[in-house]
Design a protein around this nucleic acid. Structure first.
Lengths: 246, 246
DNA sequence: TTGCTCCTCACGTCACGTGAGGTGGC
DNA sequence: TTGCTCCTCACGTCACGTGAGGTGGC
């Protein structure tokens, strides 16, 4: 049974990658061809093609080659999982792009009418552009995978329920803060417990993910600002949490 | 009249760029702040914010920093033009993403059903992913700008008309080729003239663009393959063209 | 035999990242 | 005075690009 084999050139032509890229992947042990011909030509198998697709998907998710290599070593990672991760990310990105489109159109309309465009409008636009790249840098593939798995466990309805509960909870917490309520007050304590619950529903209690989220909110305040979160509110919530545990 | 000024840190926070990136843009003369404070702090003006937005847009279009620098020096390039270029590109990319989504969903469905997925299906998917990056590497900003300008001159209806004329013309040309008609035959000559007309309608006769297109079709046969174009047909058309001019 | 594809070095590049060591404003 | 933000070098890094020089299959 002679299986189909592809040379580097064929593979490059059909995938849009460069020959040099395939050489590089071989060099670093990310994708080595199934065999070599007698003359030393790289001969790739169908299984190699599948693996290459996984690599391309994970590259689009923004992961460095080294992380992709170790990620693909995990026994619980199937080609299906990788495709699903890619799809989830793609849908998020398309949503951000629709947002960006709206903002650019607004700026174009203003400029075309020779109106003043505020610096803020430019800032918000650049912020969205940065968010598109940013999603790619905060999680490791493992964390992203865990997040997705968690979402699937919860089911779509539950995810939506959690997402809708947030704005309400944030508003309630802010009202207490601005009203000057003591973080140890029972009313605030109740909210703090709900807060903790929602965070856990999202992260599945994974410490790495919780940490990555914390880093993201601390170093990128604009991300939190989209949901009405700021440093002041975070500090207030933290004090309430401390009071819960003590 | 004290105008608003931003320090690097403020600008970085509001745009999602790193301080190092802004330093780098200053170093290479791409974006230098309007002034410096007495202590040497970079102070950016509102005009700098506008320029930064243009830079971010052109970066998303995939241009290297050096090309962006010279492009922004052109007197005929307004902020509005840059936003329009970005919008045009964004819409194309979203179309490709919808295509990619469909393909990934098909693969996911097959994998979930534990069905065999052909190598071809993986190839086509990777091809779309590569096309998304590729658009970014064939044109210089000047060429992209000329292409867009051309499209605006033609108007949407005309662009659509041209795009719809292609498949028909390609099919007709292929039929002649496969029928063994001499490239110098009057029937083929008529088609060749139409062919030339459509190419010119698209490129506006710009030699640089025509060259870039040629390079693209030669080095990326899959791009042409999507429209039923291959090396054989190109060679046939070329012979017909030579016959036209002689 | 010619032309094309393949091979292995190995240095170059682009756009920053990442400290190192030090100064100025609130 | 302490802490934070800023400054200028300057070397490091990631994912390849780009020849250089040479071999093998149709």
């Amino acid at each position: 049974v002679a299986e189909t084999r592809w040379t580097v050139g064929e593979l490059a032509r059909r995938t849009g990658l460069s020959v040099r890229t395939l050489h590089h992947y071989d060099e670093i042990g990310l994708l080595s061809p199934a065999r070599r011909s007698e003359a030393g030509y790289r001969l790739y198998s169908a299984a190699d093609v599948v693996r290459l697709q996984q690599i391309k998907s994970l590259r689009e998710l923004g992961f460095p080659l080294e992380e992709i290599r170790t990620f693909l070593q995990r026994p619980d990672i199937s080609p299906l999982r990788v495709v699903e991760l890619h799809l989830a990310r793609l849908r998020e990105e398309m949503a951000l792009q629709r947002d960006l489109c709206t903002r650019l159109e607004a700026i174009a309309a203003h400029l075309a009418a020779a109106e003043e465009v505020s610096a803020d409008e430019f800032f918000r636009t650049m912020e969205v552009m940065s968010m598109m790249d940013r999603v790619k840098t905060y999680y490791t593939p493992e964390q992203l995978e865990a997040l997705e798995q968690r979402r699937q466990q919860l089911g779509e309805d539950e995810v939506r329920r959690v997402e809708q509960a947030w704005p309400e909870l944030i508003a309630a917490m802010r009202a207490e803060m601005e009203g000057g309520t003591d973080p140890a007050d029972p009313r605030v304590q109740t909210l703090a417990v709900q807060w903790k619950g929602l965070v856990e529903a999202f992260t599945g209690g994974d410490e790495g993910i919780t940490g990555a989220l914390g880093t993201m909110y601390r170093t990128e305040p604009e991300v939190g600002a989209r949901f009405g979160l700021d440093g002041e509110l975070f500090a207030y919530v933290e004090r309430a949490m401390d009071a819960v545990s003590s």
